[in-house]
Write a protein that binds this DNA or RNA. Structure first.
Lengths: 228, 228
DNA sequence: GCTGCTTTGTGAACGTGTGCACGAGTGCCT
DNA sequence: AGGCACTCGTGCACACGTTCACAAAGCAGC
């Protein structure tokens, strides 16, 4: 119990996979499975079995040799490690196309991230209701963050407004940001930022497609730099 | 010219950063900047200058020592490497909340990924028009993929329908998939899949928030496994 | 209790990614 | 022409992540 503070740091790569395991385990639990092997979990998660075992070993030795892992207990442990023992309300900045879709996406609240509010800078959008959440003015952000104890903000604005949105979120007291705008946000070191950029993902796919196609054909007619 | 086929493989980590450099360079170019140093590019991209230089060196030696990189030329080279010399039409499967937002998100077409079509399995949604694109029935997928020469598919369905959507995309001839559903897709080895999972991103943020909060307090009242 | 089968947990080897540090090349100024 | 300031390109060392392989541990059947 005293060593609880000295909890080993979990590698980033592992933290990124825990949510996947958690989802699979929850599904399996719902289907009545109460014990699962690392091999099966790996198969369902599309990864290597050794990786699963190593990942889970960072949480502690919660498996039983010769048997596998008790699904319900593992779910509990992963949830605890990820801090999912309670809800984390989020506030969405930007009530455009994306903000609306996010607010309407039920999966948010279901998975422990209820939408505490959605704000926009455009007065015309304020007051409209999206999936039960009323759009409020961005000036109300500090109040929402404080009364609802929000620590996670979602930036769903156009690129040009993203930095301002982030600044406001930080000033309001948010400490983690999920950024959907195609911009590199400048924030204080202590703020955790994660980025989701659709264009980047598509361009990575494009790279592989182009490579698959041979790639060489595009070399025809290459312009040269100014110098000789 | 003969060595064009022997193009060095670019590391995944670098491929993932090239789109970021590309966006920044394009912006800088629009602002009239025509030469940029690795240091400045690194600053704007939120990365290390040495990393920028190493990344760009995989494309070839396109910089000038003592000066920096010619913005326009670098943009051209990155676009070429990423296969962005021509458009890549995409087809979206699922006309729900997310599918609609994606279709309406202008950034898609602008960046070289025009929406060639959006399909849904629900007859009730077929025929409606989203941002100029008419929703068609999923049975028309093969036809859309072939006539529009689509090689990238976007899965924007609920989790339960995602695998079926992926299967249909693959059968229709798509070779790259961008998956928004919280499911690990099973596809032939040759198909490139990238995943965007909002819940995973939020859970990673949750982990850091929980860790920030101390983490130990949640240990109170931990249930134990069945065994002694 | 012993044997055999299964599956975990982890040391060790390998591969990938990062960042420093510095040689090498370039432009500018005198 | 020579010196100086600047910046790229890259070898090298280190950190991080992945995978293998196997001992340790548990269960089942007899």
């Amino acid at each position: 119990m005293a060593s609880e503070r000295t909890r080993r740091r979990i590698p980033d790569a592992t933290v990124a996979r825990l949510p996947v395991y958690l989802r699979i385990l929850t599904e399996q639990g719902d289907e009545g499975v109460d014990s699962i092997s690392s091999e099966r979990l790996a198969e369902l998660g599309g990864v290597n079995a050794a990786k699963v075992r190593k990942d889970l070993s960072y949480l502690g030795s919660y498996g039983t040799r010769g048997v596998g892992y008790e699904v319900a207990y593992l779910v509990y442990q992963i949830r605890r490690e990820l801090g999912l023992t309670h809800d984390w309300p989020v506030v969405i900045v930007g009530a455009g196309n994306l903000g609306q879709a996010l607010a309407g996406y039920g999966g948010f609240g279901e998975r422990g991230f209820p939408v505490a509010g959605i704000v926009d800078i455009d007065e015309a959008k304020v007051g409209s209701v999206l999936s039960g959440v009323r759009v409020r003015h961005i000036d109300e952000l500090p109040q929402i963050v404080q009364t609802k104890r929000v620590s996670i903000g979602v930036v769903a604005t156009p690129a040009g407004a993203a930095q301002d949105a982030a600044d406001r979120l930080v000033r309001a007291g948010v400490t983690s940001i999920l950024n959907f705008a195609p911009v590199v946000l400048a924030v204080p070191r202590a703020i955790e930022v994660r980025k989701v950029d659709l264009a980047v993902e598509l361009q990575i796919l494009s790279y592989h497609e182009q490579r698959r196609a041979g790639g060489a054909i595009h070399a025809v007619g290459t312009p040269r730099p100014a110098s000789a």
